[in-house]
Amino acid sequence: MSSLSLTTPLALFGMPAKGAPVARTNNVIVGATTTNTAVPDFELTQAAANGDMAAFETLYERHYRRVYSLCLRMLANPTEAEDLTQEVFVQLFRKLGSFRGESQFTTWLHRLTVNQVLMHFRKKGVKLEKTTEEGDELNEIVQVGTDRPNSMPVVDRIALDDAIAQLPPGYRSVFVLHDVEGYEHEEIGKLLGCSVGTSKSQLHKARMKLRGLLTKKS
């Protein structure tokens, strides 16, 4: 795990401000930032629910990059992704008490994140299902394949990230959820409020469009 030297700055941030209203019941965890992998997420959520900011900070340290990456890939906008990551962790803090540990914490947190992103899309009036320019797109992409059978270079991950950002939001959401995050179509259908069939066809169009984008690049 490449956690960089993040523990240092975070520990600095964690210094209680004068008159900080948050109770610190279990400061021991802060002292153990480097070895805290031993403390299960569930225990940390319980401590944090009782106002232990050090426990919450540890949860943040463990999960913020995955939450941010998910937001960033779905939104394709770093500023919005940071704002939403902030919102997710604030929501998380509010809801900690309701986490009973029946599912994995990461699963729970990721669903919370996806829901926040989708809510953000709805607020902005982003339509996830219909994208107008679908019509001839696939044919065109197939043509590219037919003309130049081996035209796509070996996919490098940075190029793929860039290409994902260029997808329409609907394609992007399904692709990120399925191919990056590993969600099943049934779950995606539930989250996005669409059928399994729609999720599948959106995913296929997303992949084909990505192929087109990655081919054009070379």
Binding site: L4, L6, P9, L10, F13, E57, Y60, Y64, R65, R66, Y68, S69, L72, R73, P78, A81, E82, T85, Q86, F89, V90, G145, M152, V154, V155, D156, R157, L160, D161, F175, D179, V180, G182, R207, M208, L210, R211, L214, T215
Partner: peptide, 25 residues
């Protein structure tokens, strides 16, 4: 190509937000 894309998608690196985000939270 599609196989390559799906495989690469599983290995996308994690991204890092600004270090001041924790302060804001």
């Amino acid at each position: 190509d599609l196989t390559q894309i799906t495989l690469a998608a599983k290995e996308l690196p994690l991204r890092t937000p600004s270090r001041a985000l924790w302060i804001r939270i």
